[in-house]
């Protein structure tokens, strides 16, 4: 990789935006696992492995699984965010593998929010 010039930031941002965006490079659904130290200690690695297994077993290629840092709500970990194309992101909390499986079946595959495990929709205020 050659050294970046200032204008390269724009190019990278444009390219990567497409890859990150649901409905574009990220496919129809993006599943984000919150993998900070707190999430990991609550079992988030197992949730991520389970989600990846489900995607593979379902044989679908329009779902992206990615990871991010802690969303701050440490007492409700493990947490994932599911975003389906054209819908607001939904955060699910207090997860185990079984709940993750149900969310996968209903929300990821069928597009309906699993209300009993959902914390909320949308995202946080930025300053």
């Amino acid at each position: 990789m050659p050294k970046l010039k200032i204008e390269d930031l724009e190019t990278i941002a444009a390219r990567r935006t497409k890859a990150m965006t649901v409905g574009q490079g990220a496919g129809r659904v993006k599943i984000t696992v919150h993998l900070g130290t707190c999430g990991i200690s609550a079992g988030a690695q197992r949730i991520k492995a389970e989600v990846m297994r489900l995607v593979q077993d379902a044989g679908i290629s329009d779902v992206t699984v990615t990871s991010t840092g802690c969303a701050g709500y440490c007492s409700r970990e493990p947490m994932i965010t599911v975003q389906v194309m054209g819908q607001a992101p939904v955060k699910y909390v207090d997860l185990d593998e079984k709940k993750a499986g149900l969310i996968f079946d209903r929300h990821v595959l069928e597009g309906s929010i699993v209300e009993e495990y959902a914390l909320g929709i949308g995202s946080e205020h930025t300053a």
Binding site: A19, S67, Y73, A118, L119
Partner: peptide, 30 residues
């Protein structure tokens, strides 16, 4: 299902330092 921004825990927070939390993959510079 409520809005995240209206849930007590998140409602009064304002992210500036943590503006990218939960959004970016920290291991991906792009």
């Amino acid at each position: 299902v409520p809005l995240i921004s209206e849930i007590g825990f998140f409602g009064k927070q304002r992210l500036l330092v943590l503006r990218n939390r939960g959004i970016i993959d920290p291991e991906v510079i792009d």
